[in-house]
Simulated assay, not measured.
Amino acid sequence: MYPLQQLANALPVAALYAVLAFGYAIAFGVTKRVDLVYGALFAFAGQVYVLFADVGWNRLWLVLPACLALGAAASLAYTAGAGLLVGRFVLLPLLRASQNALIVAGLGVSIALMEMARLAAKTRSLWLPPFLNTPVTLWTDGTSSVDLTVIQLGNTALMLAIVGLGAAVLHFGRFGRYWRAVNDDPRAAELCGIDARRVFLWSYVVASLVAGLSGILATSYYGNMDFGAGMVFGLKVVMIAGIGGAWHPLGAAAGAALLGLAETLWSAFGPLAWRDPFVFALLVFIVVVGRREQPVP
């Protein structure tokens, strides 16, 4: 029963990694550059969410659902705005520059976002109260059972819905056709009348919203988002997306889900202190062995 419980525990982690990798692949499809800002936006969204929920509870005296709604709305607004500003004034001007320049700029933006959230919270570690933590029995043999909480099941369903809806839009929608055209060849897309710069900005805003929603859902479950989580998740997402192909959103999501499964199983059966070294070593091995080239414009 214990292995089955661990497989069930892997579902929320796999869904989180999948939706993060999906959003990252949308941004990577138009930048073709390693982007550390994406992980910072994920952490920034969670921090803003907790901060405004705290304001709603302690200053506005709102009930918990209203506090969470206020935090979620502010988080999405701030994350989308940050994504638009970063895309327009940092990444777009450096798109034709060397990859190193964009990595350095992304690192600087990540530090700035983390410091902004830290200063706004006055270096306090704010926590949400537990909610929707009622266990739901998935399977039982009479003596023991496999359980997940309501929020774990809800998060998993919402994250998979985001991936499914995003994949449908990319495959059937007009935005998806423009995105694929710019992904394949931005210069040829411009010759066909597509504004590649506008598609780039919209793609980055959409990716930022995916990161924001992921940050809200993850923080709702864990209760907190650490100031340094952006750097760790940024590195993880960059390498996770490379497993399934960072320029292919569904492939990136599938590879990320497998990585989430492996990480959870290691936490269950291996030494916890070696989990992150194991994950990063596995990512490096997979990326190096299965390395595929993608033309850079």
Rank of each mutant, 00 (worst) to 15 (best):
L20C: 10
Q294V: 10
V289S: 01
A181M: 06
F28A: 11
V19P: 04
L283P: 11
G270R: 08
P295L: 13
W57N: 13
L36G: 07
L261P: 00
W266M: 00
V37G: 11
A97N: 12
T264W: 12
L102C: 00
F227V: 14
A97E: 12
R118W: 13
T140R: 12
L126I: 08
P186K: 13
D147Y: 12
L148Y: 04
A121Y: 07
S267P: 07
R33H: 13
G83R: 09
A254E: 11
P3G: 05
G106D: 01
A181Y: 06
F175N: 01
I103C: 10
S145Q: 13
A112Q: 03
R187W: 07
L7T: 04
A218F: 15
H171C: 08
A53F: 06
W61G: 15
R33V: 11
P297K: 12
A168E: 02
Y204F: 15
T219W: 06
N133I: 02
A43G: 08
M114G: 14
T143V: 13
L113M: 04
G164K: 05
M231F: 15
G230S: 04
Y2M: 09
P3Y: 14
L265S: 04
V288C: 02
G251E: 10
G234C: 00
R292M: 01
D141N: 13
Y24F: 13
A189Q: 04
G230H: 02
F285M: 13
G83N: 07
K32G: 10
D54A: 10
V210A: 12
D147A: 06
E263N: 08
G106W: 00
A69F: 12
